[in-house]
Design a protein around this nucleic acid. Structure first.
Lengths: 191, 191
DNA sequence: ATAGGCATGTAAGCAGTTACATGATTTA
DNA sequence: TAAATCATGTAACTGCTTACATGCCTAT
């Protein structure tokens, strides 16, 4: 099972509806687990029928009603078992890197564009994560929060997300720079 | 299609057999595309029947014979079309981060172990990638190579791999440190 | 002899993606 | 009144994982 535990972990932050979870997993739980909306509705249905989460109807006047979910005791046990088991290795798949690997036989112009766009996305995510850090630690500074905060899990993963996005941004910009300089020189002195 | 283009890109580095590709994708093409052996044999068969790669029997005395593959002209066109199309967003999935997110309701001891082990793996990969950088740039220094080298794609992706592994190592160690300090204090002053 | 690396697959099952479908309510 | 957001799904397909299977050659 894969999504299961990511959903359980996300539901520790509070009661969420399927729709709210889609928003969280669109960004990717601090960028470390992406999932599509349909996946989440399907997984929630399964989790509920397995008794790992419990749903509760919330009646809303101004919007369509929704069902929000909480992790049950059985869900907590499942999480504990999962945490004790060995973790699968990190899975990364990225088109952009594949393209860069092949750049020497490609037209670099489009790739340079894509790298700059990715850098902007990374910058935006970084800003988002940094705001989230401030929100999570409240009025404490980071060091005190990490020492004495009650719930540091999401903070720690968010710190990881910031690291990743910062590196992604810098790598994309540096790579775009390198490639565009090479393209410029190739134009000047056509061998 | 997914693996397709990663395989085509990998085959730009030279003729490889299925088995050699499994070794490359085990590490993950500079850590950005993991694939299991069976996937590769299946994908190579498809790529060949689609005419995007061409296989060639290599007779060996000291080992079982093998078939090595080259990208055909049709394969190059496929790569070019792929590179021009918009890239899918980065996909990351990581058990370890999910566990850290949930750490506040878990026994941290096992997680701290797992984080330290992951840090070691990252360190090892980093060393591997740094060796690869030296091998790729030969007797040139990095700046000259990036300016004037013939084939910089693999070098650029490898630089990305180094960045990722460095951050992964540092984040794991910092997180393990934070968690073990908290665990120590929780033991001292049981509220 | 046997363990380990080289070399290549098949088959079954599960997870994830893409496309489609519906309907209420809010904002422009 | 059209577009955007909230809210929840189904169905078909593809891609990936897990388990199994085979056989050669080399080094210990």
């Amino acid at each position: 099972m894969a999504l299961r535990h990511a959903v359980l972990a996300a539901l520790l932050d509070g009661e969420y509806s399927g729709y709210q979870l889609t928003k969280i997993f669109e960004v990717g739980v601090s960028n470390f687990w992406y999932a599509a909306p349909q996946q989440l509705y399907a997984e929630l249905a399964k989790l509920e029928s397995d008794g790992l989460v419990a749903g509760r109807e919330v009646v809303q006047r101004e919007r369509p009603n929704k069902r929000v979910f909480t992790v049950t005791e059985a869900g907590m046990n499942e999480l504990a078992a999962y945490a004790a088991a060995p973790a699968k290795p990190l899975l990364i798949r990225d088109d952009l890197i594949v393209k860069v690997h092949a750049v020497d036989v490609l037209d670099p112009a489009s790739l340079i564009d894509q790298l700059r766009r990715r850098a902007e996305e990374a910058e935006a995510k970084l800003a988002l994560f940094e705001k989230m850090l401030v929100r999570l630690r409240g009025d404490m500074d980071e060091e005190s929060f990490l020492r004495r905060g009650e719930r540091v899990g999401p903070y720690l993963t968010c710190l990881g997300g910031c690291r990743l996005e910062r590196e992604m941004r810098d790598w994309c910009l540096q790579t775009a720079e390198t490639l565009s300089e090479r393209a410029a020189r190739a134009g000047e002195e056509p061998s």
